[in-house]
Design a protein around this nucleic acid. Structure first.
Lengths: 342, 342
DNA sequence: CTGTTAGCGCCTTCAG
DNA sequence: CTGAAGGCGCTAACAG
C-alpha cells in the first residue's frame, strides 16, 4: 500500500532501452529524436514497444546539454498577483505550447534583488530565451544577459536598453480615455496611478495625460498616486471646485481597485457623483456601482503571443533592429461613464 | 549598437575558468560546489576573481545530470486564470525561494490532454518533485508518476490515489457559511457551484451542503451549477416561495462572479433583496453592492507553503503514510449578509 | 539502415 | 590541498 510512497530511484535510460530492445543507443536516440525515417520498420516497432514497456522518458536535461537546445523559455514576471501579468503569461504559454516550448516562470515579487537572482537562475537552467516584465532597474544585468540570450521586454521598457518590446500604446490609450470622458461631459479629471517608481508604462501614461490635458483648454487634470493618504487627497479632489463634472481615470487595475474602494469609503454614489474609467479590464468591473466600470482593455493574450513570436524570430537568427509593438486598447463602455449634462 | 542583438553563442564553461585561473576543473567545481573549505585561501580567491571576470555561471543542467539533483520543483496548475491557483502558487514560490529551489509552472488550462503532456514535460526536465492541482482524471498517469517522484496534491484529491494533500477543510467551511447565514436570518439557501465535473473540492462542498441542509429542518437548500441557463434558474430560485429570506452561497470565486453578475442582471438590489456569501476572498469583494460580499477566505499562502513543505519532507526521505492538511477558512463579514428579521 | 566513438558541462572518486 | 580520469543520459558525426 505504501509502495506509492517509494519513488524508485533511477529512471530508465536510453541504454536500458537499447539493450532491452537489442539495438544500439544511437537507434533509440534516432527514434525519439524523430528520425524515424532512418529506421527499419521492424526496428522502430521494436523500440517503440520497449519504450512503452519500460516507461522510458528521454531526459531533456541531457538532451539539452548535448544539443544546446533545451526548448525552455524563461519568463520573469514583476508581480504574479497582478492579473495583467497573469493574462500576458497565459498568452505566452499558449504560444509556447504551439511551438513546442516549455515555459519557466519566475516571479520577481516587485523585488529588485529577486529579479537579479531569478535572472541568474533562469540563465543557469539554459533557457533559450527570456521574456521579461522588468522592474526597470538592473539595466546592467539585463544588458549583460542580452549578450547571451535573446530577450524581449513586456509592458515595460528601460532607458538606454535596446530590446524588442511589446506592450500597449499608452499614449493612444490615454487619448481614448480622455476623449471618451470629455465626450461624456466630464471636465475635471484625476489620473490615479500606482506610485511612479520608474516603471515605464506608468510614466508614459502619466506623461501622456499631462501633455494631453495641457493641450486641451476645456479640461482640467491632476495626477494622484495611490500611496500615502490617498483617500484624503481624493477627497480634496472631489470637494474642490472645478470646471465641471469630475471623473477619475485609473491607470491600471490596481489603481481602479484602490480608487473604487476609496470612493466608496468617501460615500460617493457610484457613479452619479463621479465618473470612472480604468485601464485594464478585470472581470469584476461590470459588477461595481451603477452599471459597472468603463474600461480600456489591453489585448493581453495577443501581447503574450507576440512577445513569444518576437523571441522565436530572434532564436531563428533575426538580427534586425529592436522591434516595438504597441497594441491599441479597446474601449468598453459601462455605467461609470454615462452621458451627463455639463 | 546592435551588438546587443548578437547573443554570442557558447557560454563560458568551467574549463575556461579553470585554465584562465591556472587551476584544474576539479578545483573550480569544488569552489562553486561550496567545498571552499577544501581549497587554499589563495586558490579560492583566484578562482573567485576569474569567475567574476569571465561572468561564469554554472550550468545547472549539467550539474543536475551528474548529481541527480536539479533543485527544480514542478507545479501543475489547473487554471492559471483562477486567482486561487495563482495565490497558492505564490505561496509555493515563496517556500521554494526559501529552500533554494526553482519553481517550474505548467498550466493545464483545464484540459485533460495538456495535463498529460505537461506531466511528461515536467518529468523530462528532471524536476525533483511535483505539486499538482489536478483535474482529477488520469489516475493512472499520476500513480505511475508517483512511483518516480514525490508528489503532493493541492485542493483536489483523486479517488483511489494515496498522496499527500493540502487544501481547505471544505466541510467546516460549508458549516461556517450555513451557520453564518442562518444566524443572520436567512432560511432559503442556494449553493452556486461551477459544474460538478469530478473536481473533488467542488464535490465535497456540494456534499457537505446537502448533508448539513438535510440535518437542519429550519433551512431549505438547493444546489445550482453555473452552466446552462444559469440566470433563468437563479430567477426561479428568487421568485419561488420559500421558508424565509433567501441567500446565495457561492462555492468559489468564479461562482461568486457569475452569481453577482446574474443577480444584477435580474435587477436584484444587492444585498437587500438577497444575501450572499462566497468561498474565497477576492480583492474586489468589498466593492460590490451595499457593503461588499461576505467571504470565507482560504489561507492560500499557507496552503502553498505547506504543500512545498510536505514535498520537501518526502524529498528528505520521509516514508510516512499520506498526510492531509485541511486548513480552516476565515469568515470575513461584509454587507452582503447584514442581520435581517426572518 | 545501424553501430561505434566522442564528447556536451559538470561532479566525484582516487591518487598524488 | 589539488589534479587526472571516468561517467551522468544523450546526440552527432563517422564508419560500416
Amino acid at each position: 500500500m505504501n509502495s506509492i510512497l517509494l519513488p524508485s530511484r533511477g529512471r530508465v535510460t536510453i541504454s536500458e532501452v537499447a539493450s532491452a530492445a537489442g539495438v544500439s543507443k544511437a537507434s533509440v536516440s534516432r527514434y525519439i529524436g524523430g528520425d524515424r525515417q532512418l529506421l527499419a520498420e521492424a526496428t522502430a516497432e521494436r523500440i517503440a514497444q520497449t519504450i512503452e514497456r519500460l516507461g522510458f522518458r528521454p531526459n531533456q536535461m541531457a538532451r539539452g546539454l548535448k544539443r544546446g537546445r533545451t526548448r525552455l523559455i524563461g519568463m520573469l514576471v514583476a508581480d504574479i498577483l497582478n492579473p495583467y501579468s497573469v493574462a500576458v503569461m497565459h498568452g505566452v504559454e499558449t504560444a509556447c505550447q504551439r511551438h513546442g516550448y516549455t515555459l519557466v516562470v519566475c516571479n520577481t515579487n516587485r523585488d529588485d534583488e529577486q529579479e537579479c537572482r531569478h535572472l541568474a537562475a533562469l540563465q543557469s537552467y539554459n533557457v533559450e530565451g527570456l521574456i521579461v516584465n522588468t522592474l526597470g532597474h538592473h539595466a546592467g544585468e539585463l544588458k549583460d544577459l542580452q549578450n547571451r540570450l535573446p530577450l524581449v521586454l513586456v509592458d515595460r521598457q528601460m532607458e538606454g536598453f535596446e530590446a524588442d518590446l511589446v506592450g500597449l500604446d499608452n499614449t493612444q490609450a490615454v487619448r481614448q480615455a480622455i476623449d471618451h470622458l470629455q465626450q461624456r461631459g466630464y471636465r475635471d479629471l484625476l489620473l490615479v496611478s500606482e506610485p511612479l517608481d520608474g516603471t515605464s508604462s506608468r510614466q508614459e501614461r502619466a506623461q501622456a495625460f499631462r501633455t494631453q490635458i495641457a493641450a486641451n483648454p476645456s479640461l482640467k487634470g491632476r495626477l494622484l498616486e495611490t500611496n500615502g493618504d490617498f483617500t484624503a487627497k481624493l477627497k480634496t479632489f472631489l470637494t474642490e471646485p472645478g470646471p465641471g463634472p469630475k471623473a477619475v481615470f485609473a491607470a491600471n487595475g490596481m489603481a481602479a481597485l484602490t480608487s473604487t474602494a476609496s470612493l466608496r469609503e468617501l460615500g460617493c454614489r457610484l457613479f452619479e457623483d463621479i465618473g470612472l474609467i480604468a485601464l485594464d479590464d478585470l472581470d469584476w468591473y461590470p459588477l461595481v456601482g451603477n452599471g459597472g466600470i468603463t474600461a480600456l482593455a489591453q489585448p493581453t493574450e495577443a501581447i503574450g503571443i507576440t512577445a513569444l513570436e518576437y523571441l522565436l524570430a530572434r532564436l531563428n537568427g533575426s538580427r534586425s533592429a529592436a522591434q516595438r509593438m504597441a497594441f491599441p486598447a479597446e474601449l468598453r463602455i459601462r455605467g461609470s461613464t454615462q452621458p451627463r449634462i455639463s
